[in-house]
Design a binder for these strands. Structure first.
Lengths: 167, 167
DNA sequence: GGGCGCATGTAATGAGTTACATGATTGA
DNA sequence: TCAATCATGTAACTCATTACATGCGCCC
């Protein structure tokens, strides 16, 4: 449940309502974080039940009411515990795209090249989106940089595989 | 369901029984693939139901009977479809370790350094395990190389973060 | 008047994991 | 004799996703 860590960390910075959190994740953490809207709402409600956050209902004019969340002392303690847990462990990441590459030689080169070309284009688009993301305060920016590194490594790797296919 | 692609690809090479598949994944694809035993058995049974593989029960002496799986024509067709699907798409990978880094500045440097040291040691161990894996035929080796690249990028990145923490 | 943005959720489903269950054989 | 290896699974659970549901306000 590292999603909790993320939401706690973001709320620790600014109190936010769910919609706002989702917007922030979509626009400012694009391509780094995959948390869908219902998941965020679900996690928020869970943390509310657990006493990690409290919510205050506010309303502007006739707009839909917002639930603004802020951390409790227990939420802060949970955050401190979760960051340390996360920092101290190595989280091996899985590459779903590997299984295709693993059996690349089952596909004739003339077919494989354009397919990997499509993959490459999507990767480049991802990288562009990542570099378009606004710069963040402090260590939040580390996440963007980290992602950028891996995407660059991925691109270099993919180009090498494509080059090998030319032969 | 990229697990299906992997199992099909492996079975396409050699007919195997479930235990054997699990052993191969554990020993020969260490750190690249995370498929737990029950998952593999589950997927095998599902593919059996779907007619992608057939199984033949064999027994050596009084040992437990084995179910040896081999691809059907439909299985081969499914494999061909799935490889192309996989090759043609970019699969963004998620880095669960990012959320810790994103809030690194919430932890004092004296605490963060040893925690990241533990993370680094686990990463180095992972890399060593990966390099101890036997070399595979053909493109299966690409998966190992790919993983190695990313682990090296990760190590370089982590060392950079640690260096920044020294200041 | 029609579609998008704001704002929150529920319900159903899926994929995969952990823990549990079984039972024979082999080697220390 | 005790643990590890061989061999297969089931049951319960978790986490997250997709699809669905609601309803007002704003702009073209």
């Amino acid at each position: 449940m590292d999603k909790q860590l993320l939401l706690l960390g973001l709320l620790r910075h600014h109190d936010m309502h769910g919609y706002q959190l989702n917007e922030f994740i979509e626009h400012d953490l694009a391509t780094c974080v995959q948390i869908k809207k219902p998941t965020a709402y679900y996690v928020l409600n869970k943390m509310l039940d657990d006493g990690w956050v409290i919510s205050e209902e506010t309303q502007e004019g006739n707009r839909p009411p917002r639930r603004v969340y802020s951390l409790t002392a227990e939420g802060e303690a949970a955050f401190q515990r979760l960051v340390r847990e996360n920092l101290g462990a190595y989280h091996p990441s899985q590459f779903g795209g590997d299984f295709g590459l693993a059996f690349l030689d089952a596909v004739p080169g003339e077919e494989a090249r354009p397919l990997l070309g499509v993959r490459r284009a999507a990767l480049v688009a991802h990288l562009a989106a990542l570099q378009a993301v606004p710069v963040h305060h402090g260590s939040l920016q580390l996440m963007i940089e980290h992602q950028t590194r891996h995407l660059q490594a991925e691109l270099a790797w993919l180009d090498e595989v494509l080059a090998r296919l030319e032969n």
